[in-house]
Write a protein that binds this DNA or RNA. Structure first.
Lengths: 222, 222
DNA sequence: CGATTATCTTGGATCGGGTCTATCTATAGA
DNA sequence: TCTATAGATAGACCCGATCCAAGATAATCG
């Protein structure tokens, strides 16, 4: 790698570090790109040269998340179902959670900060949704090709959306626990437990979940 | 209703009509709010007084869609499952689709335009995702309260996300058909058919969908 | 009916994200 | 060392969105 590329990498890292520090300090929406550029001693245009949008300063490798997930499902062993591979991936790659469980204070702080900043920023939440949707589409395409169904097969899309829905529910669960600061060292274990019941719902069908459950419970809104 | 309120309603309609006309003509992103204001003979501040964001000019009553969906599930007859009520609502309220099926040229044109404009605009698609996510949350809250589960119950969230996933898949299906201009008078019937298999996947469980299907089909990406 | 008050509209200033262009700097390659 | 070129930079500019002070108008009350 030449000097030029090394400097580029360095500048990129400088920008992302600076942005992260400011975001962690004052939240995403209250920090301007101009400010980040000034703090990092670069031009605003340079920031946008490296990162197409402000949100990418916070999620520098967001596409990788989705790509790894799809890859995990695609490259599973023969015999394993897509659902099982998806579950394995979800529980296996909770790197930050595992470190928190192991008592890593740095990881705990990061987990808290990330979730606090995202929760407080509509723009970041929108970005998150966008990535999740792209992920669902990629997963649907994979499932479609695996089953040999024609493009746009509704079964694959429904299945992909349902799987991604589990991810979304687990992320929400983690976020609410983190924001409430509720026994975070136990969080990883609890997430595994939540995931188990989440996937059980999908595997056994939604029919079981709600069949004939309205006799003993009142309707909330009328 | 006093004169003041009548004029307000009139102005609101004028703005929304003007905006719709321009959007239909040149797409969402290529029309500026300033231009809409000028064309409607009002101040730009007035536009933002009526509509909090530009996207709301295109989706004037977006929350109602989600609210009606949740309401349909909440107010179902005892004995009907949430899934059944959701399906009934999805298929029952395809007003535009039904009119297209009946040969309504105006409805057909509107269906085409709406989908063309949305598909071409990242901002509108983001707005759509936001509404869908809000809808999933509301549905999850309803299901949670119905089953008497504690707030944040993962089963309800997974189920809600899966149901909304069907909606999303059907919208995608409609959109692709509309963009491809593929036998649109048959579309409503085809959507009903797609919905049937979509819900079948959820009812019987995702396990059935993908179990042991990898022996005879190659993996797409490795 | 006339005066007051509440509400809405308006133009204009301002801000922040994002793009573009022209210019400048410094590295890569000969 | 000289040159071609990738990348950084300042600055103007566009657009969505907010804010404010001032103007217009409908509702209310004496």
């Amino acid at each position: 790698m030449g000097l030029r590329e090394r400097k580029k990498e360095q500048t990129r890292q400088l920008i992302v570090d600076t942005a992260w520090r400011l975001f962690a300090d004052r939240g995403f929406d209250d920090v301007t790109v101009t400010e980040i550029a000034r703090e990092a001693q670069v031009a605003k245009a340079t920031v946008f040269n490296y990162f197409p949008a402000k949100e990418d300063l916070f999620f520098p490798r967001l596409e990788d998340f989705g790509a790894r997930m799809v890859e995990a499902v695609a490259s599973r062993d023969d015999g394993e179902t897509a659902l099982a591979a998806f579950r394995r991936h979800l529980l296996g790659t909770g790197g930050l959670l595992d470190r928190v469980e192991a008592g890593d204070a740095e990881a705990l702080h990061r987990l808290r900060t990330v979730n606090r900043v995202i929760a407080a920023s509509p723009a970041l939440r929108a970005r998150e949704r966008e990535a999740i949707a792209a992920c669902a589409d990629a997963l649907a395409a994979l499932l479609t090709s695996e089953t040999g169904a024609p493009a746009g097969d509704i079964g694959a899309q429904v299945a992909a959306n349902a799987l991604i829905g589990v991810h979304r529910a687990l992320v929400d669960y983690v976020r609410s626990r983190v924001l409430a600061d509720d026994r975070l060292t136990r969080l990883a274990a609890d997430v595994r437990e939540q995931a188990t019941s989440a996937f059980a719902v999908l595997e056994h069908g939604l029919g079981d979940q709600f069949r004939a459950q309205r006799d003993d419970q009142p309707v909330i809104s009328r």
